[in-house]
Simulated scan of single mutants.
Amino acid sequence: MSSTRILIVEDEEALSTILEYNLKKEGYETVLAVNGDDALLKVEEEMPDLVLLDWMLPNVSGIEVCRRLRTRNETKNIPIIMMTARAEEADKVRGLDTGADDYLVKPVSHVELVARIKAVLRRIRPGLAEEAVVFGDIEMDRSAHRVKRGQVEIHLGPTEFRLLDHLMQNPGRVFSREQLLNAVWGSDVFVEARTVDVHIGRLRKALTKNGEVNPIRTVRSAGYALELTDKD
């Protein structure tokens, strides 16, 4: 993990300090930039493994920084996570269309931030990602195919394991049944959408066997999301 360098681009000093502290605590190497011009310079000098990029920056905006990085051969594949207070769906789409790999709305919890960083690294640069995935008190060892919650081992079937793995890679994101079917079962396999409900139910039962809080939220007419919540 220590070899993974994250460039934090944030003009609010207090937030930048908190982000740096939390990421260093997780074992990441950090580099700071306070504006868009500084960010582009630091990318050239440091060549980070991932960029944590604020949208609203002085001089050159985060969107413009993202666009420029994506147009250069040497930086076009650097994973970028955008952070912003802009919560509108159109803003999120614009950020992703510009080339961001993920999009977080402030304020961002430490748990979700670290989980999103690990998820992006797994997708974009698997060699930088750990086999151990953690979300709250849930720990997954992907190589050993084991799951623990609060140090107690949880026994999951193969489908429930893949389902949890996918949700843990994308914490907080709402997936429709069809999206989960494609991701877990495969787009070329015919399975009824309601099958997802059955396996979500099994996964919830396993994760709450000892009275723990249910971490899987049902979003009416939309799908499911993995969150630190006591709602179902």
Rank of each mutant, 00 (worst) to 15 (best):
M82E: 04
A39H: 02
L52C: 04
S61P: 11
I63W: 14
N35K: 07
V31H: 05
M56E: 14
V51R: 00
E74R: 14
K42W: 02
E44T: 13
C66G: 04
G62T: 10
P58F: 08
V31K: 08
K24D: 00
K25D: 06
E44F: 06
K24Q: 10
M83S: 05
P58W: 09
V65S: 09
E64R: 14
Y28K: 00
M56R: 14
M56L: 15
I78W: 01
Y28Q: 02
K42E: 11
M82I: 07
P48R: 07
L40G: 00
P48S: 06
N59G: 12
V34T: 10
K76Q: 14
V65R: 07
E64D: 15
I81V: 04
I80N: 10
I78K: 05
L41Y: 12
E45S: 14
G62F: 08
E64N: 12
V43D: 04
L41F: 10
N35I: 00
K25R: 09
L23R: 03
T84C: 03
L52S: 06
W55F: 14
R68Y: 09
I78V: 08
R68C: 10
A33S: 03
E26F: 05
V65D: 10
T75W: 07
S61Y: 09
W55P: 06
E44Q: 15
E46Y: 14
R68H: 11
D38R: 02
T75S: 15
K76M: 10
A39F: 00
E26P: 02
E74A: 11
M83W: 03
E45A: 10
C66R: 00
P58Q: 09
Y28I: 02
I80R: 07
L41T: 13
D37I: 06
K42G: 00
L41S: 11
R67K: 15
T30E: 02
L50A: 09
L32P: 04
T84A: 01
R72W: 09
T75V: 05
G36P: 03
L53V: 11
N35G: 06
L41N: 13
I78D: 01
V43R: 06
E44V: 09
M47P: 10
G62E: 05
T30S: 05
G27F: 04
K42T: 03
T75E: 09
C66F: 05
L57S: 08
P48F: 03
D54V: 00
E46N: 13
Y28F: 15
N73P: 11
L57E: 08
N73R: 15
L41Q: 14
G27T: 02
L50N: 01
R70D: 07
S61L: 11
R72G: 08
I63A: 15
R72H: 12
R67C: 10
M47N: 15
L52K: 02
L53W: 08
R72P: 06
D49Y: 03
M83H: 05
V51M: 05
V65C: 11
L52V: 07
N73H: 11
V51D: 07
G62H: 07
E26Y: 05
G27I: 00
M47K: 15
N73T: 15
I80D: 01
